[in-house]
């Protein structure tokens, strides 16, 4: 494992507010790490500190073995893709991409433009592009000088929901094709889980859990992470429905995911709502003791009526906290 970016005990305060408290994070070469947290958790501050736009109070930032903590942004070789792209409005697409390149290196500019799927757009001006295209140019511009690390600040949040998955895949592919190491911050758990090699969950200025997306989802470190990363259903431990389910860990509350719960004939619970999404549906259930559950079922099957009694089955393994 070769480490490209290493952040250790990074602390940053704004007056009396502690935005980052002793953050540690490691990004392997060629990997994409997503810092995931709610708004105000300090993830953007972390990115701005790594980029050099904010001065840190203590801690170290090392890029490729070089301590950059006290260097100005232009000497760190860390490129940034801001939230809304922030293309230079007075420069053409190709001039935007070539901004960080030595004079006359248009070959590399066209190469990265092709990488993000905009090979023919070089002569356009930024205002002639759609939001998604602008974001692609911003990524190309960041990749062009081959920086050791690229930082992406909620790069997809300003776009239409329908555009995001494609753009996300394309950007991920472009980063991989160029061998870039990237740190992405987002509040969108779907985005973090689908795009990242590793997810770092952040809360109130601290990283509370780091790991591959699947293990963060399957084995959250605490109930807050469980609720923030994916949907959580809670049952008291020892509940009748948990009979036959292997429960890992010890505690009074047991975490289930809606897709572990299925609806069958019977009368364990009453349907209180149905949210149909097309490809799947979430059925809200209430147990006789008042506990609320949610079950995710595939969309093809017919939905039960609200108020109807149904049977409930739980599959797989659960976690107690």
């Amino acid at each position: 494992m070769v480490v490209e970016l290493e952040i250790s005990s990074l602390t940053k305060r704004f007056g009396r507010v502690t935005a980052l408290s002793s953050v540690d994070l490691v990004v392997e070469i060629g990997h994409l790490v997503a810092v995931l947290g709610p708004s105000g958790c300090g993830k953007t501050t972390l990115l701005r500190c790594v980029a050099g736009f904010e001065r840190v109070d203590s801690g170290r930032i090392v890029v490729g073995g070089r301590d950059v903590t006290s260097l100005p942004p232009q000497r760190r070789r860390i490129a940034v893709v801001p939230q809304e792209g922030a293309l230079f409005p007075h420069l053409s697409v190709v001039d935007n991409v070539a901004y960080g390149l030595p004079r006359g290196s248009l070959k590399r500019a066209h190469e990265v433009l092709a990488l993000v799927g905009l090979a023919d757009m070089g002569e356009r001006m930024p205002h002639q592009l759609s939001g998604g295209q602008q974001q692609r140019v911003a990524v190309a511009r960041a990749l062009a000088p081959r920086p050791p690390v690229v930082l992406l600040d909620e790069p997809f949040s300003a776009l239409d929901a329908a555009l995001r998955p494609t753009l996300r895949r394309d950007i991920r592919a472009a980063l991989r094709a160029d061998g870039a190491t990237a740190l992405l911050v987002t509040h969108d758990q779907g985005e973090a889980l689908s795009i990242a090699d590793e997810v770092a969950v952040m809360r109130e200025g601290r990283i509370v859990q780091t790991g591959p997306p699947t293990s963060v989802y399957a084995a959250p470190s605490d109930p807050w992470v469980a609720g923030f990363v994916g949907e959580a259903v809670w049952l008291p431990s020892g509940h009748a429905l948990l009979a036959g389910v292997r429960v890992v860990g010890a505690g009074e509350r047991v975490l289930l995911r809606p897709e572990q719960i299925s609806v069958v004939d019977g009368s364990d619970a009453v349907v209180v709502r149905t949210d149909f999404h097309g490809h799947d549906a979430v059925i809200g259930l209430r147990l006789p003791d008042g506990t609320d559950l949610a079950a995710r079922i595939l969309g093809g099957a017919g939905l039960p009526e609200v108020g109807a009694p149904v049977g409930v089955r739980v599959a797989g393994q659960a976690r107690a906290f």
Binding site: P72, P73, Q74, F88, H90, G100
Partner: peptide
């Protein structure tokens, strides 16, 4: 815009000349 320009390795003076002034 100036932050992005600096993160691309350009000095503050170059950024001022190539981004701030023209805009």
């Amino acid at each position: 815009l100036e932050e992005v320009a600096r993160s691309l390795g350009r000095s503050p003076l170059f950024v001022f000349r190539s981004v701030t002034v023209p805009l």
